[in-house]
Design a protein around this nucleic acid. Structure first.
Lengths: 107, 107
DNA sequence: GATTATCATCGTAATATTGCGATATTACGA
DNA sequence: TCGTAATATCGCAATATTACGATGATAATC
C-alpha cells in the first residue's frame, strides 16, 4: 500500500488536498513568503536565504510551480519568480468555501 | 537524507506547514468536510462514507486531532467528533496573515 | 570558442506517509 | 460474565517525499 486512493474522492476534495500539499512543507512556505516580500523579482537568493542546496530549492520551486502558484520568466541567465496572486486567492476561496460556512454542531 | 530540516525555519513557517499538512491528504479533507456538514455528532459512519478501512480512518483522525482541529468525546461506545472551529479559523488567519497582504511585484 | 554563472534534471540514499490486517481496549447489553 | 460493537494501536508492505551531488543546458562574459 502507501498509495493515496485519489479516485475515491470528489474532484473538489482532491483539489484542496493538492494545493494544501504545496504549503505542507516549510521550505515551500519559506520560499513563497520570501518571494512575496521582495520588491521586484527574485531569483536564487533563495539558496542563500534558506539553507538548502540549489537542487533542493529548484525541486521545491517546481512543486510550487506545478500547482500554478508561480509566475516565472528568465532575465538573461537569471530567472525571476513571482507569486501568482490570482491562483493563491483561488486557493483561499476554495478553502473558505469548504469550511468557513460551517459551524460546529456539538461538543 | 529525506528529513525535513525544520530547524532552519522560523516557528511561524513551521506552523503553517504543520497545519497545511492536515489538509494535504484527501481523506482528511473528506473527513473534515463530512464532519462539518453533519447535524449533531458523527462517529464511524466515516468508514462507510469514505471507502477506507477503520484502521486507516482512525489514523487520519488522529492526525487531524493532533493538529487541534477536532473536538471529540465518547458517548457510550461511540465517539463523537466535531470540528474545532476556533482552531480552524486560527489556521485561516495564519495563512492570510502570511500572504494576503502581499501583492505580486512583477511578471 | 572557452569560461563562468544560473538554473533544471537525474539518480540515489534516507526518511515519511499511506493503507490494511491483526490485535488490543473499552463500553454496552444479554 | 460473555459476546459484540466501536475505536485505537501495532506492525508491516508499498509508495512518496526530501535532500543532495553530479551532470546538463543556456546565456552572459571574456
Amino acid at each position: 500500500m502507501g498509495v493515496t486512493k485519489r479516485f475515491i474522492y470528489t474532484e473538489g476534495i482532491n483539489e484542496v488536498a493538492n494545493i494544501a500539499k504545496v504549503f505542507a512543507h516549510p521550505a515551500r512556505v519559506a520560499i513563497l513568503k520570501y518571494i512575496s516580500e521582495q520588491e521586484g523579482c527574485i531569483c536564487n537568493d533563495l539558496v542563500d536565504e534558506i539553507g538548502l542546496s540549489q537542487a533542493t530549492i529548484s525541486q521545491h520551486l517546481s512543486v510550487i510551480g506545478d500547482a500554478g502558484l508561480l509566475k516565472g520568466r528568465f532575465e538573461g541567465k537569471k530567472k525571476c519568480y513571482c507569486l501568482n496572486l490570482e491562483r493563491f486567492e483561488e486557493f483561499q476561496t476554495l478553502l473558505n468555501s469548504f469550511f468557513i460556512k460551517t459551524t460546529a454542531n456539538c461538543c
